[in-house]
Simulated scan of single mutants.
Amino acid sequence: MKTILWATLTANGNYAQSGPDNPPKTEALEDFSAKAKAAGNFIVGRKTFQEMTDPSRISQEEQGNTEGPFAGIDIVVLSKNMENIPGVTVVKSPQEAISYLQQKGHLTALISGGADIHNSFLEQELVNEVIFNVAPVLEGKGLNLLIDKDNYRFKAVRLLDCKPLGSDIIQLRYALE
Rank of each mutant, 00 (worst) to 15 (best):
L126W: 05
D150S: 15
L126F: 07
K80D: 15
V91Y: 06
L145C: 06
K92I: 09
E96M: 09
K155V: 09
I85E: 12
P86L: 06
S112K: 07
I117Y: 01
S79L: 12
K141M: 11
P94Y: 00
F154D: 09
G114N: 02
I98Y: 03
G142A: 09
V130F: 03
N84G: 12
N84E: 14
L126T: 02
V130D: 00
A115P: 00
N144W: 15
L101K: 02
K92H: 14
P94W: 03
I111S: 01
N128W: 08
L143V: 09
L78A: 09
A115V: 05
I117Q: 00
L110S: 01
L159G: 06
V130P: 00
D116S: 15
V137T: 04
I131G: 02
S99L: 08
H118C: 01
L143N: 09
K80V: 10
E125D: 11
K104C: 06
F132Y: 09
D116R: 13
I111L: 10
E123Q: 06
V130S: 01
A135K: 10
E125W: 10
L145E: 04
K92G: 13
F132V: 06
V134P: 03
V127D: 01
G140E: 05
G87V: 07
P136W: 05
L107A: 15
K104T: 04
Y152G: 08
G113C: 07
N81P: 02
N128M: 04
N119Q: 08
V137H: 05
L159S: 05
R158A: 13
G87I: 02
L110N: 02
I98V: 13
S93A: 13
D148G: 04
A156T: 11
K155P: 00
E83T: 05
G140V: 04
K155W: 12
N128P: 12
G87K: 03
I98H: 02
V130Y: 01
H106F: 08
A97K: 04
E96W: 00
K80A: 15
S112L: 06
Q102N: 15
S120A: 15
V134I: 14
K149S: 13
V90M: 03
E139Y: 02
P94K: 03
A115D: 00
